[in-house]
């Protein structure tokens, strides 16, 4: 697991950022399909609360970016990372991530100063949601380097997409529940969409990290690492399954902040461990 512990800042970044960004997918679903706009049309306070509490996932993503800074040897030059746009997958990832942050912050600031209309809310959050998914995919794609056979598969972006949807979903539910708005929209299409989102997310996450593990176990040179990572893989998958349960329960029962918070904690840990497994399986085609 040595490679993993050498990449703690990146493991932290990819965990916090994908989960934080993914919250906006659920928020977008809430605003678009949960008739939140309609059923809470008479609850502008709740909408305001949601807008305000959306800072939680935004801070999560911000914390992820700060973690990424720790990974850099010269973080003060971090903006140079934009130089490789188009050519460097890492630049592309940074660009999309920054775009997400900009949109999310615009949404939050405009809401804070009270200038956010219902239509603008839907548009901004939807754009943020799309960017979140793109961001998650780009994080994964950045690892698809031909000289790193254990990472050079679609499993990399699939797993991060999964974390984004399942984990982000839980954080989205957290925001909604903390604003006491979840029970108002826990009916109708929102419930179906969100449960599906969590299922898809969990599947993608498990297939993603499991698939990567399978690929690695077929590479002789990685056998030592593969063996060491096995218990961590099991732990991560078990955690993801539990997180899935904790994501669905609030949608079919009376939602509780405690369950959702627990789910957020579990998914944070499971995703983080999954990321450790990912980094632990690093191998090069050469030396």
């Amino acid at each position: 697991m040595e490679h993993a512990f050498a990449e703690l800042p990146l493991a932290t970044f990819s965990t916090l950022s994908s989960l934080g960004a993914g919250a906006f997918v659920v928020l977008a679903l809430a605003f678009l399909s949960g008739s939140l706009g309609d059923s809470l049309a008479g609850s502008p306070e709740k909408l305001k609360k949601i807008d305000r509490l959306a800072i939680i996932p935004i801070l999560l993503v911000g914390a992820g970016f700060i973690a990424a800074m720790f990974h850099l040897a010269t973080p003060q030059n971090a903006l140079n990372a934009l130089n490789g746009i188009g050519r460097s997958p890492l630049t592309n990832e940074v660009v999309v991530g920054l775009a997400f942050m900009v949109v999310a912050l615009v949404y939050w600031v405009v809401a804070l100063i009270g200038k956010l209309g219902a239509g603008a809310r839907k548009i901004l959050v939807s754009v943020a949601a799309v960017l979140a998914i793109a961001f998650a995919l780009f994080i994964g794609i950045a690892y698809m380097i031909p000289t790193i056979p254990t990472w050079n598969t679609l499993f990399a972006p699939i797993s991060i997409l999964g974390y984004c949807l399942l984990g982000g979903g839980l954080f989205g539910l957290l925001v909604l529940q903390a604003a006491d708005a979840l029970k108002d929209i826990s009916t109708g299409p929102f419930k179906a969409f969100t449960i599906s989102l969590s299922l898809i997310g969990a599947a993608a996450a498990i297939i993603g990290i499991g698939g990567q593990y399978l690929v690695a176990s077929g590479i002789e040179a990685a056998s030592h690492q593969v063996a060491a990572a096995w218990p961590w893989l099991i732990g991560s998958i078990a955690g993801l399954v539990l997180a899935l349960g904790l994501a669905i329960i609030p949608l079919i029962r009376k939602p509780s902040l405690g369950i959702i918070s627990l789910g957020c904690l579990v998914v944070l840990c499971s995703v983080f461990v999954g990321r450790l497994v990912f980094y632990a399986l690093y191998i090069t085609v050469g030396v």
Binding site: T74, A81, L90, I145, T147, V287
Partner: peptide
């Protein structure tokens, strides 16, 4: 210009580049 992200170090199959955090 380099920010020391280590991407080159991860990618090179000959182990040529390495990030010197002190530098």
């Amino acid at each position: 210009v380099c920010i020391g992200c280590g991407y080159c170090a991860l990618s090179c199959p000959y182990r040529a580049p390495k990030v010197d955090r002190a530098k």
